[in-house]
Design a protein around this nucleic acid. Structure first.
Lengths: 344, 344
DNA sequence: ATGCATAGTGTGCGCGGTAACAATCCGGGT
DNA sequence: ACCCGGATTGTTACCGCGCACACTATGCAT
């Protein structure tokens, strides 16, 4: 800061004015019980009056604790540079709030897989722990995760929980969610349900949603025609492509379960262009409940993940590690939001 | 000379291993030109090998520079707690990237107007500067801004630039944008253009958009019936209400310019319910180009603000203050995205 | 040789707090 | 009157790094 008249008060000045030693000021302001009520109040009054704030750097340096978490977004390697997955953006809000509630600061940054983010935060005492957000193929940076574990870094990632996970993981109950969607469609009389989304293990979340769907079908004595499964990643374009592929296969279907809303919305357009009515001919269920889902035509039935809980669980998980408690395993429930696209 | 090696690598350990003094390590790693190439390379090699990173807290404490900015979102006091204005969320991405490009860390937090955020970051050396984002009535915290200025805090806010602004401000050319929208509608043959959005000075950005519209009308020899101006804040519900109010007035109109996309989308529904065709009976232009705008029915013509530039300008502005340069005044250009809602 | 600028490196110290321990005051038990 | 323990407060020693300045070696003009 400019060294003009910026006389930032220090604890020494407070001490001087209060007629006590500087460490006493430190103790008083942190609420140590070994300071008499009288001196504490005196010190607090002076501090408030001088607009004094504890210097974060000095404090962190001494305590080796920054009370800060770092939130790292991993961008999908899409060319579309400015777009962040809206789902994760909502999560940001939730995480921020829970950090604030716990008195933590939050550093946010976007990362590319190639960069060596694993050093930047882990060694420099910038943050006490990391939260990693990013869809997709974790195998790509598995080795980085191992490094983190080896270095004793505290971190959680959002993702598929039941994998042979490296480090702590928090995620939605994707399997349950897929079943939920399946049961819903079956209850509406649909029998030939297509699935749009990666069904291989590189996207474990999508895979589990699919598995849940299969379970629902099985429970109803049904099974899924393999021709009704089309790969797609989470983007509108990909949804387009997947829906076209599906149509081109010439197999009958009366419902689509898309692994994300963006896919679903992309598919909706293709169906409309093909003259298929939603939900008349084809019912659709998406995933995520992004804002655009409610504006889709027709409004999209979708699975909501509990974002508030998710943020809380992520923060709690890192915090638990930092404070040497056992991080709670976290599989979060999901809920179906029924709108017009699945018939009604 | 150095000390014995210890557990966590510090610059002392590097120094010990390199056979130099600790400050030399410090100099070398920061690229001071007064270190010989030979020692620098030796030190760098050892540092890399030990996975050494400069301790951020110690460094910041010593230099009185944190190389960190704080991004403060001010939430609209809507009851709807989880929703952040999507426009600002996109801005977050842009700001983050520009911070990264400048080697700055970014702290993110959400604030309520009442909280005393002005102390938390300014005094504690958590951040070197602040970026304030939040629509709306800046008069509410004008006094806080004055405090910041008085305390010599470096900050920018996003907003209406030409106001008698307190502190640095970066914003879009709202007046020009309003004119752009107006000209577009006029060119499509619309004559009775309604405006939905606060037209009073508490929302200077909205007011300027309106002023721009009026200018476009005037340039075409037209004027605006005052009955065609309805207050609205940036939410779908508010758009609903405003559109209903407009209809209830019974005055004719053939276009709507909404001060935000959310308002526009809210209005679209009301028009549809009232049996009015868009754009047949009423053309609509929104503002912001939120993701949902493209999904609206029909897709919404809207004004885009250059978010990438905006993030850059905001970061540059604080940085300029920190480094005692003069912050560049920043009024950013806007662009019209023509979609179906304004006729085609 | 002597003086002097220049490059490169070491020494001492402080940034603003906090932990650990020593010192002090006080009242009660014996 | 003397000892003891708890409540408070002071003293000392850092946390890890970077700035100011002192110091050494070398080259070169005097």
């Amino acid at each position: 800061m400019g060294r003009k008249p910026s006389n930032k008060p220090t604890s020494f000045e407070i001490a001087y004015l209060a007629g006590v030693s500087q460490p006493t000021v430190s103790r008083a302001l942190r609420g140590s019980k070994s300071v008499s009520k009288a001196t504490r109040e005196k010190i607090e009054a002076i501090a408030r009056q001088l607009n004094y704030t504890v210097d974060k750097n000095a404090s962190s340096l001494r305590t080796q604790r920054s009370n800060t978490l770092a939130l790292l977004f991993f961008e999908d390697p899409t060319p579309d540079e400015s777009n962040i997955n809206p789902f994760f953006l909502s999560m940001l809000g939730s995480i921020t709030r829970h950090c604030a509630a716990k008195g933590l600061d939050l550093l946010v940054s976007f990362q590319k897989l190639e960069d060596d983010w694993h050093r930047r935060y882990q060694e420099s005492h910038r943050a006490d722990g990391l939260i990693l957000l990013g869809y997709g193929d974790y195998t790509l940076y598995e080795s980085r995760l191992r490094q983190l574990v080896k270095a004793g870094t505290h971190f959680v990632r959002w993702g598929s929980v039941d994998q042979g996970t490296i480090g702590a993981t928090v995620g939605s109950d994707n399997f349950g969610a897929g079943r939920l969607a399946g049961e819903h469609l079956i209850a509406r009389g649909r029998r030939r349900i297509a699935f749009l989304g990666q069904a291989d293990s590189h996207y474990p979340e999508f895979e589990q949603r699919h598995a849940g769907l299969l379970r629902a079908l099985a429970a109803a004595g049904l099974s899924q025609d393999p021709a009704l499964v089309v790969d797609a990643i989470s983007s509108e374009e990909s949804g387009h492509g997947a829906a076209r592929t599906l149509l081109s296969r010439g197999v009958a279907f009366d419902a689509i379960f898309a692994a994300s809303d963006l896919i679903a919305i992309g598919a909706q357009r293709v169906l409309a262009d093909a003259g298929l009515a939603v939900p008349g001919d084809v019912a659709i269920v998406g995933f995520d409940d992004i804002p655009a889902a409610g504006f889709a035509n027709p409004p999209l039935t979708t699975v909501v993940q509990d974002i508030r809980l998710a943020g809380e669980a992520l923060v709690e998980s890192v915090l638990a590690q930092i404070e040497e408690r056992i991080p709670p395993p976290a599989v979060l429930p999901t809920r179906l939001v029924v709108r017009a696209s699945s018939g009604g």
